[in-house]
Nucleic acid binder design. Structure first.
Lengths: 351, 351
DNA sequence: GCGTCCTATGTAACCGTTTACATGCGCAGA
DNA sequence: TCTGCGCATGTAAACGGTTACATAGGACGC
């Protein structure tokens, strides 16, 4: 591809002038501007991003480090980030599958010089030091951090409160024997939701029972598998709180196959309010969390952080609400409750 | 952050030596190597990516241009790309929401100097020229292109064949009055699937009827909405083929609410085989397409293209198969058919 | 007619690397 | 002792831009 020098030569001007044409600000006569544009178009010239970054120390891209990209949650987070970034004319440099803090550091290092900032989901507490180190180079926004990291912006979802609210709702419906389908060990969201569950039980004088806590891994398959064990309990629970919707879906499917009616025989609830949860049979009572917004707000925070004025204000930790969405699966008479809607930011998609 | 010069000064060597330490290949004495590493670690040095790209003309990142990121299809495509890229030590620079070819060109331009190649889903035929232009600078892999573009690698999904097979299956089951829930106008996948539907009907001597073709936009909501119109038809269709699973889900939900039994009163089938389709009630008969693999193979093709030997072989157009997954929603007795499985590459996820 | 100012444009240093080529040193062979 | 070679390391020129500063020429006031 042609370089700035080629264009300058052909257009009969200096490289500085060509550069000025592409950076708008400087004063160039209309005639020169037109000539340069014309030559550049003919030669298919466009400024080289790497060279630009080198001199300006701005890359116009934003690093995104996630543990995984699977499932609607991550997919929506990244969509939110992409849209937010796009609005601000930034591109995103994505790298996922970061299971531990070492991988995180390696990835962020390899992005040095390519990004103006970082949005990351830190896998564990061990990352704290590493992240603090990274944050010295450019603003870092943490998603759902397990602990506060000094000097970092953060934004998370009210997992504890959401689960707490959900379980209190079940208790208010008269349920006392409430099982939980847990998420993967070590996952922050999963752990917070479990805490919320236990806390709500205790507050109502119900002792959390280990035999009512079932391991899961956030997949439909794990929800499906655990159904058998739940049904094998002596003293069936009257409600099962799955800590995400996918597991609730697997559970619902297995219960249906086993001839167990939901919500008549057993109530089932989820967490996340994924798009299809309202179309399930029965429609799923769940907790609304807006992953898209999580991503978008992360970008907003970051944009704030790179503003000259923004640097002065101390990093904030924002928390997105998690609200109850009551549908049929938890056993409220259908007519008594309006069918829970879902904010729709979606567009028709391919595939 | 420290530069190569800082490290060289402190370590008492030249910048060339530091550079050599980081590029492995060149011969540096063990002692010097250790010293440089130690100093670099202390100073928190890492080579600047932009500067590296500038001299080497390699960026170690791969551009990804998609029209959207919404829904399981795109989410899986990008996951496949990410994993493929990660394996080859590449990062991906993502930009979505490219509705038209102009946006595509703008985005690809702004990536100039930042990427070593491009994976793109071209929105329309008008893009052909633009893409050919882009492909002169580095290898381009097109996803599901509407037309062949000379000089570009391409990979697509057998949409036509998948739809064709599905409708032939329905006809083999005795269905003759088969409705279709179409996708968005202008969407390649949607149009190919529609073609497959019509073609299969004609082959069996059934004339495609306009009144049996319903507009949709790939969302559950649109499937839900169209249910009313379908049920209002004089002469109910005995089967409805939704061109993606999301619309099938909306349709199933609406039919259930209307007291229409699936598959007894009406058969419903989808397309894509998204993760939850096997957990629906009834489990959804659909067409398996592997979006993850689409992404992964796109990266493979691109890696092939940048190999020195690879450049000599002419660009290929690969087609991924779309295979029938028969479950209960299309009306075959449950015991007669093994429950269709789904390849699982998934890992437990967050949220 | 000359100094002054303004504007459009050119010159050249610099950003942080890589790498071809130069250098200097130790050692082996004659 | 001299030549030649190999190896570790240094020097300096790119890479393709941006931008501070210099410059040239025209308009203007006196």
């Amino acid at each position: 591809m042609a370089t700035i020098r080629d264009v300058a030569r052909v257009a009969g001007v200096s490289i500085a002038t060509v550069s000025r044409v592409y950076n708008g600000s400087a004063r160039v006569s209309d005639e020169t501007r037109r000539k340069v544009r014309a030559v550049a178009a003919k030669m298919d010239y466009w400024p080289n991003g790497a060279a630009r970054s080198l001199t300006t120390a701005r890359t116009h891209s934003l690093g995104v480090l996630l543990p995984d990209l699977y499932g609607e949650f991550f997919s929506e987070v990244i969509r939110g980030i992409d849209h937010g970034a796009r609005q601000a004319k930034y591109q995103i440099l994505v790298s996922s599958s970061h299971a531990d803090s070492d991988a995180l550091v390696v990835a962020s290092r390899s992005m040095h010089g390519r990004i103006d900032g970082l949005i990351a989901m830190a896998p564990d507490v061990a990352s704290t030091a590493a992240i603090k180190q990274i944050a010295r180079n450019f603003p870092v926004v943490l998603l759902n951090p397990r602990v506060e990291v000094e000097g970092c912006y953060a934004i998370s979802i009210a997992n504890f409160e959401g689960a707490h609210t959900m379980v209190r709702h079940l208790i208010a419906q008269g349920h006392e024997r409430i099982a939980i389908l847990k998420g993967p060990h070590g996952n922050v969201d999963a752990e917070e939701r479990l805490r919320g569950y236990r806390s709500a039980l205790r507050e109502s004088g119900i002792h959390p029972l280990p035999e009512l806590e079932f391991d899961g891994d956030f997949t439909e398959a794990s929800g499906h598998r655990r159904a058998k064990e739940i049904l094998a309990l002596e003293g069936l629970p009257t409600a099962v709180f799955a800590v995400n919707d996918y597991m609730a879906i697997g559970l619902l499917s297995a219960l249906r196959d086993a001839g167990v009616r939901v919500p008549e025989d057993i109530a089932v609830t989820g967490f996340d309010n994924i798009a299809i949860s309202q179309y399930l049979s029965p429609p799923l009572t769940t907790v609304q969390v807006d992953a898209y917004e999580l991503g978008q707000r992360a970008v907003q925070q970051w944009l704030l952080a790179i503003e000259p004025e923004g640097r002065s204000t101390p990093p904030r930790h924002e928390v997105l609400p998690a609200t109850l969405v009551i549908r049929r699966s938890c056993g409220v008479a259908r007519s008594a409750v309006p069918r829970g809607g879902r904010k729709s930011k979606r567009k028709p998609d391919g595939g």
